[in-house]
């Protein structure tokens, strides 16, 4: 594996001028004696020159004009609007607002159940479960709340 060759790391750093003067001297001395390392360094240099010879790719149109046109309909960048340090404030604020609204709505429900609701027949809804369905004749007149013999 190329990755495990210790010389590649050193030669690569030598190519980039990243070695200390002493390390550089020692490595150059080694290269003088080691044909394989010399060959490897030449390969790395050739690779670099091939990269440098690559033509720059061209976009082929005036992107500046395109961007300018897009920016005309876009708001100006604002330092304050994008400041990340203030963004954290939004979360607790929105949470507090939601909690307050929830508490308010909950309290109105409790108030209406406790006293604001108009007085009506108690447990009217439960009449559905009476043994005598609405509109039926009462077997005994007293058994119906209206007292007229009808449910």
């Amino acid at each position: 594996m190329a990755d495990h060759c210790p010389r590649t790391l050193a030669l690569s750093a030598l190519l980039d001028g990243q070695l200390q003067p002493r390390q550089r001297r020692e490595l150059l001395a080694h290269i003088d004696r080691c044909a394989a390392c010399g060959e490897r360094l030449r390969e790395l240099e050739t690779l670099r020159s091939r990269f440098q010879a690559l033509p720059q790719e061209r976009l082929g149109f005036d992107l500046g004009a395109v961007i300018e046109a897009r920016l005309r309909v876009q708001p100006r960048p604002s330092r304050t609007a994008r400041r990340p340090g203030m963004r954290w404030l939004l979360f607790p604020l929105s949470g507090a607002a939601a909690l307050t609204l929830g508490l308010y709505l909950g309290s109105t429900l409790i108030r209406s159940m406790a006293g604001d609701m108009p007085a009506g027949p108690p447990m009217l809804a439960m009449a559905v479960f009476d043994p005598i369905p609405p509109g039926n004749l009462c077997p005994v007149p007293k058994s119906c709340p209206s007292g007229n013999g009808f449910r």
Partner: peptide
């Protein structure tokens, strides 16, 4: 950066057709 560059160069040379990287030092 140093080690990643060295690995990348070795990998590219290998791709370009040379069996590279023997520990000959």
């Amino acid at each position: 950066v140093k080690s990643r560059l060295a690995r990348a160069r070795a990998a590219l040379l290998e791709r370009l057709g040379r069996k590279a990287g023997e520990d000959h030092g």
